[in-house]
Amino acid sequence: MINPKKLIGSVKSATQMGESSVRTVIWAGLGAYSKGTEQVGMAQHMVTKQIQDLVSKGSEVETEMVERIQESKRGLFGQAESQFNQAFNATCGIDRDRLSNFEQKVDHLQEMVEKLAAK
Rank of each mutant, 00 (worst) to 15 (best):
V47F: 04
S20F: 04
A32H: 07
E64H: 14
T91N: 06
K57T: 11
S34P: 03
T37R: 14
T48H: 04
V25W: 02
K49P: 00
T48Y: 01
A87K: 12
A87R: 11
S20V: 05
Q50I: 07
S21C: 02
V61H: 09
T24S: 12
Q83E: 08
V61T: 11
S20M: 06
S34I: 13
T37S: 12
H45D: 14
H45L: 12
F77W: 06
T24H: 05
A43G: 10
I26G: 04
G41L: 14
Q52D: 13
I51D: 05
E71C: 04
S21E: 07
G36I: 08
V66F: 12
A43P: 04
G41W: 04
G31T: 09
V47Y: 03
S21Y: 00
E67V: 09
S56F: 10
K73R: 07
S34T: 14
A28I: 04
I69C: 03
T24M: 05
V40G: 04
N89S: 04
K57S: 13
F88T: 02
G58F: 02
R74D: 05
L54C: 09
L76G: 03
I51W: 03
E71V: 05
A90E: 13
T48N: 05
V40I: 15
S59C: 01
L30C: 15
K49T: 11
H45P: 00
R23Q: 12
N85T: 02
N85E: 11
E64P: 01
R68N: 03
K49A: 15
Q39I: 10
A90Q: 14
E67K: 15
A32D: 09
T63M: 05
I26F: 08
H45M: 12
E64D: 15
Q79S: 10
A87L: 14
R68C: 01
T37G: 08
S20C: 04
E81Q: 06
V47N: 03
Q39M: 12
K73D: 00
S21A: 09
E38P: 01
T37Y: 08
A43W: 05
T63C: 01
R74C: 01
S34G: 15
G78Y: 01
G78M: 01
E38R: 15
V25Y: 05
A80Y: 04
Q70H: 11
V25E: 15
Y33C: 05
R74P: 01
A80S: 08
E19T: 06
S72D: 07
I51M: 11
D53F: 02
M42H: 09
W27M: 13
N89V: 00
V40Q: 10
R68H: 06
R68S: 06
Q44V: 15
G58Y: 02
R74N: 09
Q39D: 11
Q52P: 00
V47P: 00
K73S: 02
R68Y: 07
G29Q: 10
G78F: 01
G58I: 02
E67A: 14
V61Y: 06
M65V: 10
A32L: 13
A80F: 06
T48F: 01
S72P: 01
A32S: 12
G58C: 06
Q50C: 08
L30Y: 07
L54N: 14
Y33H: 02
T37D: 05
I26K: 13
S21T: 08
E81G: 00
T37N: 10
A90P: 00
L30H: 13
I26A: 15
K57P: 08
Y33T: 08
R23C: 06
E71Q: 10
V66G: 04
E64C: 03
E62P: 00
E71P: 01
E60L: 13
